[in-house]
Design a protein around this nucleic acid. Structure first.
Length: 869
RNA sequence: GCGGGCGUGGCGGAACCGGUAGACGCAACGGACUUAAAAUCCGUAGGGCAUCGCUCGUGUGGGUUCGAGUCCCACCGCCCGCACCA
């Protein structure tokens, strides 16, 4: 039979039109079926997409299509995380308005995304820069403000002293501003904060319930929140102007090993001490140099400066410790002051060695020999468990007991009329600074009045729209310079006032978009709809968002709940973090990056510039990026192989959470498979029973084997998709196609009997349904061949007969002393005794035993037999 | 610096809860079909010794166990995040 080849260039656009015309992916909130909300993290509209962007959308689409087949009312929306820095950079570099640039990018990327055949409800599309989106965000801000979850305080920014502008961390390169090259300083500005720490305990404990999140993400969030139980200890100081210093520690047990105290450079004590000490003043100034990022602060050389002030040890009257200012102490964490116990903390040890401070061991690790001397010699701090030594009343106690004993002692001891110690729960998590001194973001709806202070913009006057008439010819925030926009009347007293010119962190935009998708098109949060759809059943995105975005979204959902806007507290019930698509990089003889289509691979493994003999250097696979040109545009793939092949390839081989390499060979393999599948379906229709044939009474061994394989396929792939193990699902389809191919070959040798004809037909229908979520266009085409009514996209998942999933005979591997020596074929229901008897009667086993007597036989049901001799 | 993860044939990877390591695919090689090519189909295939078979083998080194890719300890390499990139 001259079977036609599957032609994606013709069929794919046709089926996409059919889906669009019939609006089958339009989701209604009043649909009575059980809901299922699948969401991929929405993209930043950076320009054009490459095939690497498509991976997580395709994964989400497989889940969405599969859940539809399982009878769910599926919500699968898409939008644009459209505010942010790159739009302003485009404005500065190319003179194009951020709004124009952004909306042009959205239009282009939407066209490209549509090529992928995703089952999205485009009616719910939003861009966070749409006024109706950020209008609601401003209303939510005011709600949070009124709830006391928003406040203003000073906090540090990266300051470029040449451009006189605030820099993002990524704009600070080696401690210098990216444009001016000036050494960056830390500068304090009054900024707006969300009180995320209000929910710290709940954000932490609720992680236990998120059982469909990866453990690693939950662990990262736990560590980020960083709950610790410790002690605040007040030390009496020798300074009359600063009588005591409060220190937070999680290791009060090591207090007898203390050798110094240290405070942050911007601690009030540091400022006070520097008053009469120019050298210390200079050191504090030096500490302000460099950016604000923790990475920069913690990797720089640890330095300290002795203030000359002494602190009296709270447990040993007359023992005085020096007080340092140190560049690695953060004012935001704890009390901004620490005591250093060098023997039991690595950072303190490095510091003590550098400044020649004593190092006294006070914890003896379990099993270690008692040192003769309290002075500790090593370079690796002992931060593990053990028992206290050289510590007076603590000697012999465990670390935990000693912590408690010190806390009890200091709680009852007073200094200046108050307890000297106080047990305290502390969090590493800091409140969320949302102020950005930039134009292209959601304006913070606050008006500053000289007499009334900061006043939220009244609901009736919202939204505060971004003005369009701005210029980017100078560094800094154009809103600051826009006097007409800035000047307003105070909503409270009517007096002259000015608008807040900070805009919100774009993480605010992405902290509630999933709730907006659930709501209607007018932009307001629809409580009933949000409560119906949330939480998102399956959220899919990159691991790089494991902490910040996900934590902020969890916070914001709680905040909205506490304002009475919605009833849900946790936004994402299921989370999956997918890997990136990587591609080889290519450089020509001049070191210039080349696009993949400019490179030709020769049979000998060498690479040359297409159409020439110029050699090309092939680099290792890296994340697809415009700058390295190792990108593959989706149009090119769609035109040559079709998007189903691209989808199939993206789902194949590599586990979805791992990075996957895009190769020409891989996409060709997908093409071959698509053609093979199409041929097999054609052949099955020719040889198999007609549509709707009655179930035969009896099935022979061949037809039973095929039916078992088909039903097993549907059951296994269903389980694989539920667990998002797409690569395994693909492998199972391949394995089934191999079995199907054999059955078809056997059937072709004669006229198939009724039972085999039925099984062939059934297998074809199962196969098409099973691959439909992954290659939906091809499946629709096969659906037509099968004479199916209606669209495969709207069909049901195959119904599996459980009787066909159980085998009556199994093969058990037999080990002797843990090494496999034989195989035993035995009834699936055989008892332990029967298995043991059969094992010892087996010829191969007896030969391998060489007459030795079995000491023990371990039978693991349906798994393995191990004979120990 | 701190937190988290990953490491299995030539390549991508499979292996449930500690139970046959290498499923499935790619590349390769051999064969069939063809005037030829493409396409397709069939077959071979971790290393070593080699006759059934034996032996080594999941980044490295130790350990627990009847049995370890899987659990524990130490180390090496790579990747992600670190609060103003999104």
């Amino acid at each position: 039979m001259a079977t036609e080849r599957y032609n994606p260039r013709e069929t794919e656009p046709r089926w996409q039109r059919v889906w669009a015309d019939r609006e089958i992916f339009r989701t209604r909130n009043d649909d009575p079926r059980p809901k299922y909300y699948v969401l991929e993290m929405f993209p930043y509209p950076s320009g054009r997409i490459h095939i690497g962007h498509g991976r997580n959308y395709v994964m989400g689409d497989v889940v969405a299509r599969f859940k539809r087949m399982k009878g769910f009312n599926v919500l699968h929306p898409m939008g644009w995380d459209a505010f942010g820095l790159p739009a302003e950079n485009a404005a500065i570099e190319r003179g194009i308005h951020p709004k124009t640039w952004t909306y042009e990018n959205i239009a282009a990327m939407k066209e490209q995304l549509k090529l992928l055949g995703l089952s999205l409800d485009w009616n719910r599309e939003v861009a966070t820069c749409d006024p109706d989106y950020y209008a609601e965000q401003q209303r939510l801000f005011v709600d949070l403000f009124e709830k006391g979850l928003v406040y203003r305080r000073e906090s540090e920014v990266n300051w470029d002293p040449v451009d006189n502008t605030v820099l993002a961390n990524e704009q600070v390169i080696d401690g210098r501003g990216w444009r001016s090259g000036a050494v960056v300083e830390r500068k304090k500005l009054a900024q707006w904060f969300f009180r995320i720490t209000h929910f710290a305990d709940d954000l932490l404990s609720a992680l236990d319930e998120l059982d469909r999140w990866p453990d690693k993400v939950r662990l990262m969030q736990r560590n980020w929140i960083g709950r610790s139980e410790g002690l605040e200890v007040r030390f009496r100081l020798s300074s009359p102007d600063f009588p005591s210093l409060k220190v937070y520690t999680t290791r009060p047990d090591t207090l007898y090993g203390a050798s110094f105290l240290a405070v942050a450079a911007d601690h009030p004590l540091a400022r006070l001490a520097s008053a009469g000490n120019a050298e210390l003043g200079a050191f504090i100034e030096e500490c302000k140099r460099g950016g604000t990022s923790a990475e920069e602060i913690e990797t720089m050389e640890k330095k300290g400066f002795d203030t000359g002030i002494k602190a009296e040890h709270p447990l040993v009257p007359g023992w005085f410790l020096p007080v340092y200012v140190a560049n690695f102490i953060l004012l935001d964490y704890g009390t901004g002051a620490i005591f250093g116990c060098p023997a039991h903390d690595q950072r303190d040890l490095d510091f003590a060695r550098k400044y020649g401070l004593p190092v006294k061991q006070v914890v003896l690790p379990d099993g270690a020999a008692m040192p003769g001397d309290a002075a500790f010699e090593g370079d690796v701090a002992l931060d593990g468990d053990g028992r206290l030594i050289h510590s007076d009343f603590l000697d012999g106690l465990t670390v935990a007991e000693a912590k408690d004993a010190v806390a009890a002692r200091l709680e009852s001891q007073t200094l200046d009329g108050a307890p000297q110690g106080e047990r305290k729960v502390n969090f590493r998590l800091r409140d969320w600074g949302i102020s950005r001194q930039r134009y292209w973001g959601c304006p913070i709806p606050v008006i500053h009045c000289q007499s009334c202070g900061p006043v939220p913009v009244p609901q009736a006057e919202l939204p505060v729209l971004l003005p369009d008439d701005v210029s980017f010819d100078r560094p800094g925030n154009p809103l600051d310079r826009h006097t007409a926009w800035r000047s307003v009347a105070c909503p409270r007293c009517g007096g002259p006032a000015r608008r807040e010119t900070d805009t919100m962190d774009t993480f605010v935009d992405s902290s509630w978009y999933f709730a907006r998708f659930a709501s209607g098109p007018d932009g307001a949060l629809d409580r009933a709809a949000v409560d119906h759809w949330l939480p998102v059943d399956q959220y899919i995105g990159g691991i790089e968002h494991a902490i910040l975005h996900l934590l902020y979204a969890r916070f914001f959902t709680r905040a909205l709940e506490s304002c009475g806007r919605i009833s849900v507290k946790e936004p994402f019930a299921g989370l999956f973090t997918q890997g990136m698509i990587v591609h080889e990089t290519y450089k020509d003889v001049n070191g210039k990056w080349l696009f993949p289509e400019e490179v030709e691979k020769r049979a000998d493994g060498s690479a040359v510039r297409r159409g020439t003999d110029e050699p090309v250097t092939v680099g290792p696979p890296e994340k697809m990026s415009k700058s390295k040109r190792n990108v593959v545009p989706p149009e090119v793939v769609a035109d040559t192989y079709g998007v189903d092949c691209a989808r199939w390839f993206m789902l194949s081989d590599t586990p979805p959470e791992r990075d996957s390499e895009w190769t020409e060979a891989g996409i060709e393999g997908a093409w071959r498979f698509a053609q093979r599948l199409f041929r097999q379906i054609n052949e099955a229709i020719e040889l198999g029973a007609p549509a709707g044939a009655a179930l035969p009474e009896r099935f022979g061994p061949e037809s039973t084997a095929l039916r078992r394989a088909a039903h097993r396929l549907a059951a296994d792939v269903e389980a694989d998709i539920e667990r998002l193990r797409f690569n395994v699902a693909v492998a199972r389809v391949h394995a089934f196609a191999n079995a199907f191919g054999e059955a078809l070959a056997a059937a072709r040798s004669g006229t198939p009997a009724a039972d085999l004809a039925f099984a062939l037909r059934e297998a074809a229908e199962f196969l098409v349904a099973v691959v439909a979520p992954m290659v939906p266009h091809l499946a629709e085409e096969c659906g037509v061949l099968l004479g199916r009514d209606g669209l495969v996209a709207e069909a049901a998942w195959p119904i599996v007969d459980p009787a066909l999933l159980v085998a009556d005979e199994i093969v058990l591997p037999v080990q002797i002393n843990g090494k496999k020596r034989a195989e035993l074929t035995i009834a699936a229901g055989a008892s332990q005794a029967e298995i043991e008897a059969a094992t010892l009667a087996d010829e191969t086993v007896l030969r391998a035993l060489e007459g030795r007597l079995p000491k023990k036989i371990i039978v693991v049901p349906k798994r393995i037999v191990n004979v120990v001799v």
